[in-house]
């Protein structure tokens, strides 16, 4: 039995079925990410002045990831154009670059996540807060790298990321006996994971959901590039359409990042 409208357009829509399907799916994705972006905006404008964190994210890494995704969108469209011009070898080359870009993006994102999970805020008994990257956790002491003591009053005056640079960072060794205790006797120290504050919660939600989309898109692109590429010989037009559909999804994922980068890293 033949499945209709896999290559030729329907008369009523003017499109082959998969293209209508992917746009309906992308419309639902717009609603999903739109709701999360709206949540971010509402949380941010509702925060007390000076309470919203600045300068927590590494801008050069975010910029690198943005360039990686822009390059991947160019290679994905060039791969599709290569199939339109019946050049399968060039398609293979461009899609392999797309896959490498996806891996590079996920690698950099993993590094950023690791950085946040090792970045700690430590509450001391004298009321001070030490902030830095945990590199040693010994029986009696902890050691924080790139650390500083937080001045809550000064932090409240920070309105731009560049003001954070005036903070001098050093290596700090803290005795565990100097750290405040929580209920239950645990040390009052916490990493910058999703549980840390509202900002990290929405940051991990948005970027985590985006990273899942990158993984999903990369898996589809890989299968079309490798195991399913035999269809190019049996039904080239349908195969080209499949590549276009995967490219549309990939572009959506890239476009989401184009909005995420300035919102999370710059503003």
């Amino acid at each position: 039995m033949d499945i209709p409208y896999t290559s030729e357009p329907r008369q009523d829509t003017g499109l082959f079925n998969a293209k209508v399907g992917i746009w309906l799916f992308l419309a639902s994705e717009v609603m999903l990410f739109g709701a999360l972006f709206s949540s971010y905006i509402l949380l941010r404008v509702g925060a007390e002045p000076g309470e919203w964190p600045h300068g927590l994210l590494n801008i050069p890494l975010g910029m690198t990831n943005t360039i990686v995704l822009i390059v991947s969108s160019i290679t994905v469209v060039m791969a599709w154009a290569s199939l339109k011009m019946k050049n399968f070898a060039r398609f293979k080359l461009f899609q392999s670059i797309t896959l490498l870009c996806a891996l590079a993006f996920l690698g950099i994102k993993s590094y950023e996540y690791h950085d946040k999970f090792t970045h700690y805020e430590v509450w001391l008994k004298d009321g001070k807060i030490a902030d830095g990257h945990l590199v040693e956790n010994n029986a009696d002491t902890i050691v924080l790298h790139h650390a500083h003591y937080v001045d809550k009053e000064a932090a409240a005056k920070v309105t731009h990321a560049w003001q954070e640079r005036e903070i001098k960072e050093e290596e700090i060794t803290i005795k565990k006996s100097d750290i405040r205790l929580r209920e239950g006797g645990k040390l009052d120290m916490e990493s910058y994971g999703p549980w840390h504050n509202t900002y990290t919660a929405i940051y991990f939600t948005l970027t985590g959901l985006h990273a899942l989309h990158v993984i999903g898109g990369a898996i589809v692109i890989f299968f079309l590039w490798g195991p399913l590429s035999g269809m190019w010989k049996t039904d080239p037009e349908r195969y080209t359409n499949r590549i276009e559909i995967s490219g549309l999804f990939w572009h959506f994922v890239d476009l989401v990042w184009i909005f995420l980068f300035p919102v999370l890293y710059l503003l």
């Binding site: 469209v77 599709w80 276009e244 184009i258």
Partner: peptide, 17 residues
Amino acid sequence: MSLKAFHLVFIVASIAL
């Protein structure tokens, strides 16, 4: 909208960024 059109929209957004 084809991949060509969506790519143009994406590149315009990237230029603005």
